[in-house]
């Protein structure tokens, strides 16, 4: 009789899974409807988020004065990016410390908007300081400067960090977006 009871435990153990499977199946209907409404909500919130982003830009950064600086990383084999500081006409307007995830996102083709602001028409100077770990695990720091003319339309610059295969060194450049 004892052995029989122990066998019952074993049977209960083996049957436990099937009851869970049935319980799970019975929840599928409810799950579906909630999931659907959540999906619809996500869609609507994304749309609202989009409209609000556009509204924010229209309101805070009108096209005539809008100025943005982006940062991109091509491969990043010779530089492990740590930090970036951006100066606009001698004022520090942005600085950023990078997490590993952000660096990976940049290496995979992502582009970070480092700064967004308003700028008057005329001549301006932008300087970027890039810090990280360079070749041979040595601390690396480099700056790049660009003088540019801000017209009456939006202006965008890109800080482009890329590997230079000629001397196995990273290269920092600032380029204007047309």
């Amino acid at each position: 009789m004892m052995t029989h009871r122990f066998s019952l435990i074993l049977s209960a153990l083996l049957l436990l899974g099937s009851s869970t499977v049935f319980a799970q199946d019975s929840n599928d209907g409810d799950e579906g409807s909630v999931a659907l409404s959540v999906e619809e909500l996500k869609k609507q919130v994304i749309r609202l988020n989009r409209d609000l982003f556009i509204l924010e830009e229209d309101l805070l950064f009108p096209a005539s004065t809008q100025f943005a600086v982006f940062l991109s990383l091509d491969t990043g084999e010779f530089l492990k990016l740590d930090a970036v500081k951006l100066k606009l006409d001698d004022d520090t307007v942005a600085s950023h410390l990078y997490t590993e995830r952000q660096v990976k996102a940049l290496q995979r083709g992502g582009m970070q908007r480092l700064y967004m602001g308003n700028l008057k028409t005329g001549s301006h100077q932008v300087t970027v300081f890039v810090e990280g770990i360079g070749p041979d695990n040595r601390a690396y720091k480099q700056a790049a400067t660009l003088e540019f003319e801000k017209g009456t339309g939006t202006a965008a610059l890109e800080i482009r960090i890329r590997d230079r295969s000629s001397d196995y060194q990273p290269e920092v450049a600032i380029v204007e977006w047309e």
Binding site: F70, S72, A105, G109, G110, M111, Q112, R160
Partner: peptide
Amino acid sequence: RASDTGYGMALYEYH
């Protein structure tokens, strides 16, 4: 590199 800044930003968030 991304030839569209908006797309580049989307990829940055995506990755």
